[in-house]
Nucleic acid binder design. Structure first.
Lengths: 329, 329
DNA sequence: AACGTTCGATGTAACGATTCAATAACCCGG
DNA sequence: CCGGGTTATTGAATCGTTACATCGAACGTT
């Protein structure tokens, strides 16, 4: 494979000049530039990114670690982040921690050894030690969807307390007095906040919210939780469920309708995220919408601000307000 | 940030020894190793992957470029690939070309400048010149879901002709005589094959298949195509549609039911891929299932075979058989 | 024609690891 | 206690770039 030296030889110039046409074309005379470009084309030369990164001390990359690429919410978020990374001529490497701490650590470690410019991450363990260490060693990090009030790191999140409130108030207003919350693990703050918000809004309207904890936020977990709910029998069952995300809601919807319940007559359902499938579901899903792509965009913007503004940069915690999208469930 | 030299100094050994404990721990005496490991921990040392890659000539990475991360089909495929990459102690970098040739080229180029060990790719332009050049310059490539009979490259695919046949035969058997195929662009061979297969099976049963081409395989495109279908009026409408993937089918389903058609009574629908949402749809979707994760696994295995077995490695084209999953649509 | 400027091109020292041949330390039997 | 054979460690060369100080040519002005 051709090296910069081969190109230089072929074009009859020095390697420095080749490097210049690659990195500051305006600094080299048009004729020489043309000659060098021809040599590059003839040789099929491609610069070695490792060597580049080695001398400049940083790669032209940022990392994005999400807990579930399968969840369209994160896919949309990734798109938003890519959009702004493009403007900075940086590529986004996407990694799927699949809700596994071990995988998350592996990927974060890998990203750090690659000396990426920065990392966007939704930590599975609520942003624990691993992230602290990353930051303390100097890698810029922006937390996604983990709105801890920490001053030591930028974060972008949605006010899930408000989101929960929206859902709780909506259901209470519809006359529901017994509401179930399906979601988990409750140790995840975004999940706990949604529950909390719903509880408060429901309490204010004289309704109660019972938590049904799930191991994950997936369709399968939703099916399982719904199974337990259905098994209880009509008398002993809440009349509405608020699901911590749309994937769960879809699972619940699927199972309860299969078991003969009507939605929303026998059981009302409210989801969260408002992914594209929510509107296309068996019963179009009422859901709490998060500004998905915007979340990704803003997170990336904060990251690049920190990367470029280096030392003097105040960490900011940006919180978005969710919005209730009422459909038929 | 600590370098290997700092670690060596702190542990009182040479850099070569530190490198050894990192790469072949069994070759260094237990006592020295312990000392070095302590120094590494104290300094929070992390090797610089760029430097590593530079001297070894290859990074510990493979690339995976898919046309749509949002499509759960590809997410599952990625999971399969990661699983086998893990075993080789290699990480999978995931990139979303979003069906854009320009983005695909950018990512492939980037991967090549990073000197990745190999690339798994579902090319948007049916594996044209870009991929040929990649291969000719020596990067191992495995094509995903692009089963061209080319002997010059490994590929993993599903027999979409058979898949189309499955769908066409199923609908014809149900008595449908006018079937629409919704999907596109038809220039994509996987899409064209599905249409072809459906046509043949339908023709054998005396039915006809009319193609409704869409610009992409998304929910939105499905909605749009369905709109056109609905607008035609009951008399002039096919009684069944076969969609090139489940995303389209979901879009079609959503629009036609919104417009008052019953599925499957007024319009039967068959999807393709059998993603998780298919079963959870308004009307549980009949779909042609592809072995998604297995596809990813086998592709990765072929790639590593080529990477490790270097010169002598016969390119193979693996084709899987799809399977019809009958549900209610 | 001489001189000061500018603009373009050059050469080389890093960057941070790995590799490998050479050397040193060690172990054990005689 | 010495020598022969291992086993451990060392040190320098190397990977492919970029950055930067330096050098040279060309040009316009007086």
């Amino acid at each position: 494979m051709a090296r910069i030296e081969d190109v230089a030889a072929r074009a009859g110039v020095s390697v420095g000049t080749v490097s210049n046409v690659l990195n500051r074309p305006q600094a080299v005379a048009p004729k020489t530039r043309a000659r060098v470009e021809a040599a590059i084309a003839e040789l099929g030369y491609l610069p070695n990114e490792s060597a580049r990164a080695l001398v400049s001390g940083r790669s032209r990359t940022v990392g994005l670690v999400v807990p579930d690429v399968t969840n369209p919410f994160f896919a949309d978020l990734a798109r938003g982040a890519e959009e702004v990374a493009d403007k900075h001529d940086v590529v986004v490497e996407l990694y799927n921690s699949a809700d596994s701490l071990e995988r998350e650590l592996r990927y974060l470690g890998r990203l750090e050894t690659q000396r990426v410019q920065g990392i966007l991450v939704t930590p599975v363990d609520r942003g624990g030690r691993a992230v602290e260490e990353l930051i303390s060693r100097g890698t810029p990090v922006v937390l996604l969807d983990r709105g801890r009030p920490s001053r030591s790191v930028c974060s972008v999140s949605v006010d899930h307390l408000a989101g929960g409130r929206l859902a709780g108030a909506h259901l209470a207003e519809l006359g529901h007095r017994r509401i179930a919350f399906v979601g988990g693990p409750l140790s995840a703050p975004q999940v706990a906040d949604r529950l909390d918000g719903a509880r408060r809004a429901a309490a204010a309207a004289g309704a109660t919210v019972e938590a049904v904890e799930t191991p994950a936020l997936t369709v399968a977990a939703g099916r399982q939780a719904a199974g337990a709910l259905v098994a209880r029998g009509a008398g002993d069952r809440p009349s509405a469920v608020f699901c911590a995300n749309d994937l769960l809601a879809l699972g619940v919807l699927q199972t309860v309708t299969r078991d003969g319940l009507r939605v929303p007559e026998d059981l009302a359902i409210v989801g969260y995220d408002d992914i594209e499938f929510a509107a296309a579901a068996a019963v179009p899903l009422t859901s709490v919408r998060q500004p998905r792509e915007q979340l990704g965009r803003v997170a990336a913007e904060l990251l690049f601000e920190e990367i470029n503004d280096a030392g003097r940069h105040g960490h900011r915690q940006v919180a978005f307000q969710p919005e209730l999208v009422v459909r038929r469930s």
